[in-house]
């Protein structure tokens, strides 16, 4: 195969492919035959109320535990058969705060770089660049304890991007943030999608975080009720508002608030 064909085909390979994944803890089925795809360079919203199965899906993709049925592939690589390779292309921002409060920003980033096997000689430059991207380059020697919620989220995004992953997972990244901080976090991630051709899977229960150009996956009680673009959502449900469309699909009066 010549190089240009490979590059073209590589572009078509999805950052994430989930096919027919079900998962249960004891008798409770948490995920029921879930399939979804996150193309490269796309912002895909995983929309669902608390308890829809979003966190379980993330635990399976990050291999906290294995999927028992179905397949999860990163850039075509099965996470069960090729865990090391798949995880090396993955960046994650967890819902809970995961930075070391007593360490400085650059120490946190250096630790994360070493977990990705990036030697200290290279990680320093990468850390500076990553902090610059989220507008935190002037605070690299400060302790995380001094940062606001929005600032530490931005540092977590910088951290997750240090090893230049192809897929970025974010689990309710704006939970507990004020409006300004939320907007800045969202715009940073949207820029990454454009500039780095990154595939993003953004789990949320907040409808106003959705942009008309996003891909949407609606997850409810462990089942995928819809996947597609916003216009497709409207034409399927006959509504002109994402909230209305969601309510008509799930029968819920509203998404659970925090």
């Amino acid at each position: 195969m010549d190089a240009s064909v490979i590059i073209k085909q590589k572009a078509k390979l999805a950052a994430l492919d989930v096919e027919g994944v079900s998962h249960a803890f004891g008798p409770t089925k948490v995920l029921d035959n879930v399939s979804l795809s996150v193309p490269r360079g796309s912002f895909t919203v995983l929309l669902g109320p608390n308890g829809a199965g979003k966190s379980t899906l993330f635990a399976l993709i990050t291999r906290l535990y294995d999927n028992i049925s179905g397949q999860i592939k990163l850039l075509g690589m099965d996470v069960r058969r090729n865990p090391s390779l798949a995880l090396s292309r993955l960046g994650v921002v967890f819902q809970s705060r995961t930075l070391d409060l007593d360490l400085s920003l650059s120490q946190n980033l250096a630790y994360h770089a070493s977990l990705q096997g990036i030697p200290h000689s290279k990680s320093k430059v990468l850390a500076e660049a990553a902090l610059k991207r989220v507008g935190m380059e002037n605070r690299s020697s400060e302790k995380v304890r001094n940062l606001s919620g929005g600032q530490s989220r931005r540092v977590e995004i910088a951290r997750s991007m240090m090893h230049q992953p192809n897929l970025l997972l974010l689990d309710e990244p704006t939970a507990g943030l004020d409006v300004a901080a939320r907007e800045s976090v969202i715009s940073i991630v949207r820029n990454l999608v454009k500039e780095e051709n990154l595939g993003v899977l953004w789990a949320t229960h907040l409808i106003d975080e959705i942009d008309p150009t996003d891909n949407i996956v609606v997850l409810h009680k462990g089942k995928v009720l819809f996947k597609g673009t916003v216009p497709e959502l409207f034409s399927m449900t006959g509504k002109t508002d994402i909230g209305d469309a969601f309510r008509s699909m799930t029968g819920l009066s509203q998404l659970e608030a925090e």
């Binding site: 090396s88 994650v92 967890f94 809970s96 994360h112 977990l115």
Partner: peptide
């Protein structure tokens, strides 16, 4: 809990 999960998403065994 978060710190443990950060550790476990490392690509190393």
């Amino acid at each position: 809990t978060g710190a443990m999960r950060t550790l476990l998403v490392s690509p190393f065994p």
